[in-house]
Computed example of a mutant assay.
Amino acid sequence: MADTLTLTLETGDVVIRLRNDLAPGHVERIAGLANEGFYDGVVFHRVIPGFMAQGGCPKGTGTGGSKLPDLKAEFSAEPHVRGVCSMARTSAPNSANSQFFICFDDARFLDRQYTVWGEVTSGMEHIDALPKGEPPRSPGKIITARAA
């Protein structure tokens, strides 16, 4: 199973430690989609200062996912703090698919309600630099995403 995910953004690389110990099903999905090129060219469509940056929607709108079935929730007590990577979903707990978010700051109110699958180990400054907005006027883009 993959240990890291590297997102290459226009401003540089973001390295994420994959948390197989917390969410093996979600890590497998993220790594698999990344290595198939699913995330290449996908934008961060929702970037809220002090909260999080969300991406992973192939439509760039927050309304889409992969063709794979939604995932069963793998909630944990891992705190949603700066640099934590977690899955986006609808109000249904088992609806995560391909969309994810990276926390800018503490968002502990999300704990035990969203699946944490990774944490940024380097390059958080590139997430901080993403254009802000819902959606941003000129959104930041994932050039490539690869798991190793």
Rank of each mutant, 00 (worst) to 15 (best):
S98D: 04
L68N: 09
C57L: 03
P135M: 01
T144G: 11
G12S: 06
G62T: 05
T11H: 12
H26S: 13
S91L: 12
A77C: 01
Y39Q: 01
G25R: 14
L18W: 05
G62A: 01
R19H: 10
S122W: 00
A147W: 05
G56Y: 15
S95L: 10
G60S: 11
L22H: 13
G60L: 08
L18T: 08
G56K: 11
C57T: 08
H80Y: 01
L130I: 08
L71I: 11
A96H: 14
A77W: 03
G83C: 11
A53N: 09
A34C: 02
V15A: 07
T115W: 02
T144W: 09
D106G: 05
V27H: 11
A31R: 08
K67L: 15
K72Q: 11
K72V: 15
G32Y: 02
G64K: 04
V43E: 00
P49T: 02
A2E: 05
M87P: 08
N97Y: 08
T4P: 10
M1W: 03
A23S: 15
R146P: 06
Q54P: 05
P93C: 03
E134I: 01
L130G: 06
L68I: 07
F101M: 01
G62F: 06
V84C: 12
A92P: 00
N35W: 07
C103N: 14
G62Y: 07
I16K: 01
H80E: 04
F101D: 07
D105M: 03
D13P: 05
D106E: 13
G32N: 10
P24C: 08
I142M: 13
K132M: 04
F101Q: 09
N94S: 05
L110N: 09
M87Q: 04
P24G: 11
K67P: 06
S86F: 07
N97G: 14
L33G: 14
K59V: 02
G140F: 02
M1A: 15
T121G: 01
V47Y: 10
P69N: 09
K132N: 03
G55Q: 08
F100L: 11
A145H: 11
A145K: 10
D3K: 14
P79D: 06
S76H: 01
